[in-house]
């Protein structure tokens, strides 16, 4: 299994780095998240605890733009350049091709997230103890959430042929799924009792609300299942969308 996924993974990684997309993504991601972390909404310096919670709170919104930007070409570019024809005539199962591409994007997101590790490290050295258990949970949650965002973007890329269409469709879908939880906040919208079910529904499908527990340092099995479930459903849809083209 590994020997077929790895060449695809390696090619994707080299493609991201050769085309500078990886560098642009990493620089912008690190720059934007740190600016927001340190200066937005009063900035980290006003907080009294040594915590990365603020950083992880903004992540769902950052992912909404950055992950479609990174993964929009996964299929759309292969289709527009015709290389998908070569790719699907190699003796490799489609799910392995999708998995190789998926892991490459996840690796880049992982590297981008790892670039923020300097904050707790410096805090530990110069300020004081950091809650490493909570931090581990936050990074784990961020990676699980990234899986869901990547899978949605991959699916959108598989049903479009142009990069811009892929980006817009992915970003719009992810924004809706992310904001679905935000609008249920009391200070955004008050739901009358008879619409209570809608509030619960929006909360449950939201990509951001399920991250709430992780950002607090708590692992809930429902949140893990939710992210993995979303990732698997869209992963499956991606494979089916690609297979359907063989019949069209």
């Amino acid at each position: 299994m590994y020997n077929k996924i790895y060449p695809i993974y390696k090619r994707e990684m080299s493609s991201y780095f050769y085309s500078s997309i990886a560098y642009i993504f990493l620089i912008l991601f690190v720059f934007m998240t740190n600016i927001m972390f340190f200066y937005f909404f009063g900035g980290i310096f006003k907080e009294e605890t040594a915590s990365m919670r603020r950083y992880f709170t903004i992540l769902p919104y950052v992912f909404t733009v950055f992950i479609p930007g990174l993964a929009m070409g996964s299929w759309a570019k292969e289709k527009s350049e015709g290389t998908i024809e070569m790719l699907f005539t190699y003796p490799v199962a489609q799910w392995k091709i999708v998995a190789g591409k998926f892991l490459a994007v996840l690796t880049l997101v992982g590297i981008a997230l790892a670039c923020s590790l300097f904050i707790p490290l410096l805090t530990q050295i110069f300020v004081g103890d950091f809650d490493w258990g909570q931090l581990f949970t936050q990074y784990l949650g961020a990676l699980l959430m990234a899986c869901a965002y990547i899978a949605v973007t991959f699916f959108m890329s598989s049903i479009t042929s142009e990069l811009i269409d892929s980006f817009l469709l992915s970003a719009a879908t992810l924004l809706l799924l992310t904001l679905a939880g935000y609008v249920t906040s009391a200070y955004v919208m008050v739901f009358p009792d008879w619409l209570g079910w809608l509030k619960i529904f929006l909360n449950e499908i939201s990509l951001s609300t399920h991250f709430g527990n992780f950002s607090k340092g708590v692992i809930h099995s429902t949140d893990v299942i939710y992210y993995l479930g979303i990732a698997l459903v869209f992963f499956y849809c991606n494979i089916k969308a690609l297979e359907s083209k063989k019949w069209s």
Binding site: N3, K4, Y6, P7, I8, K10, R11, S14, S15, Y18, S19, E81, G82, T83, E85, M86, T89, Y90, P91, V92
Partner: peptide, 26 residues
């Protein structure tokens, strides 16, 4: 298989591309 337009990964060198195809061909 050699398709009509011979689509290739343009960002790779010739050697890298052949190495990639050799890898996926096992």
């Amino acid at each position: 298989y050699l398709p009509e337009r011979s689509p290739l990964y343009n960002d790779m060198t010739v050697y890298e591309y052949l190495s990639f195809v050799a890898d996926v061909r096992g």
